[in-house]
Amino acid sequence: MSEREIHHTLTVPETLVPEDLQRNALLTSVDSVYNWARRRSMWPLTFGLACCALEMIAAGAARYDYGRLGMDIPFSSPRQSDLLIISGTITHKMAPQLIRLWNQMPEPKYSIAMGACTVSGGTFDSYAVVQGAAELIPVDIYLPGCPPRPEALIYAFTKLHEMVGQQSVKTVSWYRKEGEA
């Protein structure tokens, strides 16, 4: 496999662990186990919006199989899933449901905006369509394409895994009370 010369703009915020703590062997190993577990068992929510959903299904089927990454249990309840793949055009009619599903998911949760429509509204510059999923919920990874190839979706997963791998139990926001730094 050839090395990619041009690595595109994936900027992950640097870890906020203080320097003396970074050498703490226990903390780093806890972190690595914690992050490994979340990477290798990231259950997606069964949620398809439009044509990108077909490509998402294809990525889960035999030819591309994202089950290899430990994602092969698409849960239909948001309470049990970790990853929301927003696959397709978000109409204003569907926006409340999307927000509701996102709010029902327990932390730690991640989201991927898949396809041009969810990144920026895409081809539907119209009164009926939300211009990008970022208007509704926080998005971790934006994946352009109309629709993206199944390989591209799995590429987005690997980039999300990289992002998860750089988080630390000490600094993640979801184990803190509201308002804590």
């Binding site: 068992s41 035999a62 199989d65 089950g67 290899r68 092969d72």
Partner: peptide, 8 residues
């Protein structure tokens, strides 16, 4: 005809 989880 899939592999299933094989990276962990």
């Amino acid at each position: 005809d899939r592999f299933g989880p094989n990276l962990a």
